[in-house]
Write a protein that binds this DNA or RNA. Structure first.
Lengths: 198, 198
DNA sequence: CCCAACGCTGACGTCAGTGTCAGTTGGTAG
DNA sequence: CTACCAACTGACACTGACGTCAGCGTTGGG
């Protein structure tokens, strides 16, 4: 079907769009900016995408899926590593992915919401699916005594939000960005919160 | 100076803009939408604001300032309540403010970044000032043994991000929105993280 | 009662960005 | 060599949101 030539051009356009969106923000970015950065004529863009929102949605949805796909279920079978180590490994993959694609972090976690109602709904579905999966994981953890008691939706909201903000700040340079340090910081927070033991 | 008549109209326009932005998102919202909701002519808008970005910036900056202003420094003098109670009281004020202004939460914490570079910088300054203040508070806490050891910038990033996400989800209905439950959830997270004690 | 100052109106010209499409290019198969 | 086709071009017509401004009420102090 899709020739390799075509696939390549599509990639180039996606990469250009990613950089433009990260630099100028969705509102100020124009299709002209994207094709200029790509060294390609205006019309070419429309051979690959419907419009600005389409390419934005492709970037965001794809990155979201990659992040979600990098999370592996916790394996509780006898020979498997300890759950805590599996959690850490999951965090490492997510953080690694984020640091490898700083612009996509900015776009996806920083500016994607509120751009367009239709896109918002798509993202909400993604987010909901991920949330449901993690909720089940957490429930199992609670039953095994690995996760403390409490409303899982609230705990998840805080944990995911905290991780997202940390990644945003890390790629934005507001916070030192060493991968291991970031993973450790999140693990410490999950294990002990912020305050000292009473 | 500013007559009460003028002040009232300005308020009406701000309220209308708040609702329009929350419903349609910044991109799709137009000045026409705002004046229509306000029952006022197009030209009137421009007697009060420069353009769409100006009114958006006013909403966001003002709400950000109100949130920041609701946070009181921890009083360590002899007669004062325990620091943990003061922390909880601060959380209660922030959560209460958020639940009282759901649309502003959506706008300010959900869609404000990436709209415009100039606005981003303004918000970054706000955020930076708040962050610095909280960093100092946290440092004192560490010295007193009330806050665990660790990189304060990372801890703050996670904590603030977690709170913001929780508020976004609460006003968006993704999560049950009882004020006390939200405050408790955050306090629990700050005190003990997510995982059970090893 | 008057009129000046204030607040408001809304039709209008402008323009940045859009999406199209008739035409060009260049690689490849016969 | 030629014929073909997919990929690409970029000038063009169009759109819709913008910001303005000359003129119209209204209000309240003198």
């Amino acid at each position: 079907m899709t020739s390799p030539r075509r696939e390549l051009r599509r990639r180039q356009l996606l990469d250009a769009a990613r950089d433009v969106f990260a630099e100028k923000g969705y509102v100020a970015a124009t299709v002209d900016d994207v094709v200029a950065r790509c060294g390609v004529a205006r019309g070419t863009f429309y051979l690959y995408f419907d419009d600005k929102l389409d390419v934005f949605g492709a970037l965001v949805s794809d990155f979201f899926a990659r992040v979600a796909g990098s999370i592996r279920p916790i394996d509780l079978s006898p020979g498997a590593p300890r759950p805590r180590e599996q959690l850490r490994a999951n965090l490492h993959r997510v953080v690694g992915l984020a640091l490898a694609e700083p612009h996509l972090v900015t776009i996806t976690f920083g500016t994607a919401f509120g751009v367009d109602p239709a896109l918002d709904e798509r993202l909400a579905r993604f987010y909901g699916a991920l949330s449901t999966f993690m909720d089940e994981t957490l429930q199992t953890g609670q039953q095994l005594g690995l996760v403390r008691a409490g409303d899982r939706r609230l705990m998840l909201s805080i944990a995911i939000g905290g991780l997202q903000q940390l990644l945003r700040d890390a790629v934005g340079g507001q916070v030192p960005g060493d991968e291991d340090a970031l993973v450790d910081a999140v693990m410490d927070f999950l294990e002990g919160g912020l305050l000292a033991r009473a």
